[in-house]
Computed example of a mutant assay.
Amino acid sequence: MIHTWDALKTLALSLDLPNVETAVSWGNENLKAHGKMWTWWSPYVDAAIFKGSIEEREMLMEADPDTFILHPHYAKHGLLLVAAGRIDEGWAEARLRQTWRDMAPKRFLKEWDARHGGT
Protein backbone atom coordinates (compact mmCIF):
# COMPACT_ATOMS: atom_id res chain seq x y z
CA MET A 1 0.00 0.00 0.00
CA ILE A 2 1.14 3.52 -0.77
CA HIS A 3 1.10 5.92 2.17
CA THR A 4 2.85 9.08 0.91
CA TRP A 5 3.43 11.35 -2.05
CA ASP A 6 7.08 10.28 -2.15
CA ALA A 7 6.06 6.63 -2.48
CA LEU A 8 3.53 7.43 -5.22
CA LYS A 9 6.03 9.62 -7.07
CA THR A 10 8.67 6.88 -6.85
CA LEU A 11 6.22 4.34 -8.28
CA ALA A 12 5.14 6.67 -11.09
CA LEU A 13 8.69 7.55 -12.09
CA SER A 14 9.75 3.89 -11.94
CA LEU A 15 7.36 3.20 -14.84
CA ASP A 16 9.97 5.00 -16.98
CA LEU A 17 7.36 6.49 -19.31
CA PRO A 18 8.53 9.29 -21.59
CA ASN A 19 7.22 12.85 -21.38
CA VAL A 20 6.83 12.66 -17.60
CA GLU A 21 8.24 15.44 -15.46
CA THR A 22 8.12 16.74 -11.92
CA ALA A 23 6.46 20.14 -11.69
CA VAL A 24 4.97 22.57 -9.20
CA SER A 25 1.44 23.87 -9.65
CA TRP A 26 -0.29 26.19 -7.17
CA GLY A 27 2.65 25.69 -4.82
CA ASN A 28 2.39 21.88 -4.76
CA GLU A 29 4.61 19.30 -6.40
CA ASN A 30 2.97 17.08 -9.00
CA LEU A 31 3.86 14.90 -11.93
CA LYS A 32 2.95 15.94 -15.43
CA ALA A 33 2.63 13.69 -18.44
CA HIS A 34 2.69 15.19 -21.90
CA GLY A 35 2.65 18.65 -20.29
CA LYS A 36 -0.55 18.06 -18.27
CA MET A 37 -1.04 17.24 -14.60
CA TRP A 38 -0.95 13.46 -14.30
CA THR A 39 -0.98 12.69 -10.56
CA TRP A 40 -0.42 14.56 -7.31
CA TRP A 41 -1.16 14.58 -3.59
CA SER A 42 -4.04 16.67 -2.33
CA PRO A 43 -3.16 19.67 -0.15
CA TYR A 44 -6.67 19.43 1.37
CA VAL A 45 -6.88 15.80 2.48
CA ASP A 46 -4.30 13.00 2.92
CA ALA A 47 -4.94 11.35 -0.44
CA ALA A 48 -3.45 10.78 -3.87
CA ILE A 49 -5.21 12.23 -6.89
CA PHE A 50 -5.62 10.39 -10.17
CA LYS A 51 -7.50 11.42 -13.27
CA GLY A 52 -10.84 9.75 -13.91
CA SER A 53 -14.45 10.79 -14.35
CA ILE A 54 -17.17 11.89 -11.98
CA GLU A 55 -19.17 8.76 -12.83
CA GLU A 56 -16.23 6.48 -12.10
CA ARG A 57 -15.52 8.30 -8.84
CA GLU A 58 -19.13 7.88 -7.71
CA MET A 59 -19.05 4.17 -8.51
CA LEU A 60 -15.74 3.64 -6.70
CA MET A 61 -16.85 5.66 -3.67
CA GLU A 62 -20.02 3.59 -3.42
CA ALA A 63 -18.07 0.33 -3.72
CA ASP A 64 -15.30 1.30 -1.28
CA PRO A 65 -15.94 4.56 0.62
CA ASP A 66 -12.96 4.05 2.93
CA THR A 67 -10.54 4.02 -0.01
CA PHE A 68 -12.13 6.38 -2.53
CA ILE A 69 -12.95 9.70 -0.94
CA LEU A 70 -13.94 13.22 -1.93
CA HIS A 71 -13.08 16.70 -0.76
CA PRO A 72 -15.45 19.52 -1.76
CA HIS A 73 -12.65 21.27 -3.68
CA TYR A 74 -12.68 18.44 -6.25
CA ALA A 75 -16.43 17.81 -6.48
CA LYS A 76 -16.86 19.38 -9.94
CA HIS A 77 -13.84 17.65 -11.44
CA GLY A 78 -13.37 14.12 -12.76
CA LEU A 79 -10.68 13.22 -10.27
CA LEU A 80 -10.24 10.15 -8.09
CA LEU A 81 -8.99 10.70 -4.55
CA VAL A 82 -7.52 7.60 -2.94
CA ALA A 83 -6.89 7.73 0.80
CA ALA A 84 -3.30 7.44 2.00
CA GLY A 85 -2.48 3.93 3.16
CA ARG A 86 -5.26 2.44 1.02
CA ILE A 87 -3.61 2.91 -2.38
CA ASP A 88 -2.96 -0.47 -3.93
CA GLU A 89 0.29 -0.38 -5.91
CA GLY A 90 -1.07 -2.59 -8.71
CA TRP A 91 -4.17 -0.41 -9.07
CA ALA A 92 -2.05 2.77 -9.02
CA GLU A 93 0.34 1.44 -11.65
CA ALA A 94 -2.48 0.39 -13.98
CA ARG A 95 -4.26 3.73 -13.47
CA LEU A 96 -1.08 5.71 -14.15
CA ARG A 97 -0.26 3.75 -17.30
CA GLN A 98 -3.80 4.13 -18.67
CA THR A 99 -3.96 7.82 -17.85
CA TRP A 100 -0.54 8.36 -19.45
CA ARG A 101 -1.84 6.69 -22.63
CA ASP A 102 -5.10 8.67 -22.54
CA MET A 103 -3.17 11.93 -22.25
CA ALA A 104 -0.67 11.16 -25.01
CA PRO A 105 -1.04 12.88 -28.38
CA LYS A 106 -2.39 10.35 -30.90
CA ARG A 107 0.61 10.55 -33.23
CA PHE A 108 3.05 10.06 -30.33
CA LEU A 109 1.08 7.09 -29.01
CA LYS A 110 0.94 5.46 -32.45
CA GLU A 111 4.74 5.72 -32.74
CA TRP A 112 5.21 4.55 -29.13
CA ASP A 113 3.00 1.52 -29.67
CA ALA A 114 4.82 0.63 -32.89
CA ARG A 115 8.16 0.66 -31.03
CA HIS A 116 6.93 -1.02 -27.84
CA GLY A 117 4.29 -3.46 -29.04
CA GLY A 118 1.29 -1.48 -27.80
CA THR A 119 2.26 -1.46 -24.11
Rank of each mutant, 00 (worst) to 15 (best):
W41C: 06
M103K: 14
P72R: 11
L96H: 01
A47R: 04
P105D: 14
E56L: 14
E62D: 13
L11C: 03
T99D: 15
L79F: 12
G27P: 01
M61W: 07
L31K: 08
H73A: 11
N30H: 07
F68Q: 00
D64C: 03
N30R: 12
L81Q: 10
E56W: 06
M61G: 05
A75S: 14
H3N: 11
A84H: 09
K36P: 02
T119C: 01
D46H: 12
K110E: 15
Y74C: 09
W100G: 04
D102T: 10
D102H: 13
I87Y: 04
M1Y: 10
L31Q: 06
M59W: 11
R107Q: 12
E89G: 07
L96P: 01
A114M: 11
T67C: 11
D113E: 15
P43I: 01
S25A: 12
A83Q: 14
L109I: 07
I49V: 15
L15M: 08
T10N: 13
R115D: 12
W91S: 13
I54H: 11
H77R: 13
M37S: 09
L80K: 00
D113A: 01
P72G: 09
R86T: 15
M37R: 10
K76Q: 15
G35F: 08
V24P: 04
H116Q: 06
G117M: 03
G118A: 04
W41Y: 15
W112I: 04
M1I: 08
D113M: 05
V82I: 13
G90I: 04
F108P: 02
T10P: 02
T39S: 05
L11A: 03
A104E: 07
G85I: 05
M61L: 01
A75G: 07
G35T: 03
H73I: 03
T119H: 11
L70Q: 15
V24R: 12
P72C: 10
A23L: 00
L31F: 00
L17F: 05
M61E: 09
K51F: 07
E111K: 12
L81F: 07
G85F: 05
R86Q: 14
D66S: 08
W91T: 08
N30C: 15
T99H: 08
S14N: 11
R115S: 14
A94T: 12
E89Q: 14
W91N: 10
W40Q: 11
A7F: 05
P18H: 03
K110W: 13
R107K: 13
G85V: 01
G78V: 10
L13I: 07
G52P: 08
G78E: 04
L70I: 12
K36F: 03
E29K: 00
G118E: 00
E58S: 11
A7Y: 00
A104L: 02
R101C: 06
E55W: 00
A48P: 05
L11I: 01
E58T: 08
S14H: 09
T22C: 14
Y44D: 13
D16K: 14
